[in-house]
Amino acid sequence: MTLVCVKDLHKSFGELEVLKGVDLDVASGEVVAIIGRSGSGKSTLLRCLNQLEQHDGGTIEIAGQHLDAGAMTPNDLSRNVGMVFQSFNLFPHKTVGDNVMLAPTVVRGVDKTVAERLAREVLDKVGMLEKFDAYPAQLSGGQQQRVAIARALAMNPKVLLCDEVTSALDPELVGEVLRVLEALAKEGMTLILVTHEMKFAHDVADRVVFMHQGRIHEQGPPRTLFEHPETSELKQFISAIL
């Protein structure tokens, strides 16, 4: 079942055209890794999916919800799309528990005790339950990112967008975050990740999408893509990072 359907997506920042017609379908439960050079439009594509950037042309459909160019963002888009950022963006004035409980109580109107049970459940899933009462500043980067994942999961999204979620982490902390994402993928969560972790893309993704100059240049199963790249751009990219 197609969960995300992107057709002919265009986005410009002033004169600079960042997305020049992107088509992408993502099935429910699929894990899609988007790779490519910086400036290729990976992050912009991701940010259009949850309308942090409004696209200029083309259509996006997520779980039956249409996002038209120039139209108002539906208020309940967050029901379907969750996002985790490179820089965590936890709320520094709130405890780990309150970070996770805020959106369910404020946006969904969930009762405080129900929200707390839900928060404990998702924090347990990312292995951060024992830090329920800690503040973000008391946690390591990896722990903060795991809390950020739990915070997104608490809204029960149908698809989780991850924008270079390990790029701001010390190397020894990358593993704990990737393990959480891998577990989510195994559970059947639909994931769209912009990533520089090629090993992770290789091992966990169902499909790897290579973006180049605002378009999807090449895509396919990770093994095929990494071992038998067809285009010279992808060959160059792979040889540059390995």
């Binding site: 949850n50 967050s78 950022f85 805020l102």
Partner: peptide, 16 residues
Amino acid sequence: KGQWQASRVLGMNYLE
């Protein structure tokens, strides 16, 4: 700015 973005993707409006 990330605080605004994080709130936005969690579904909170301006006043919230």
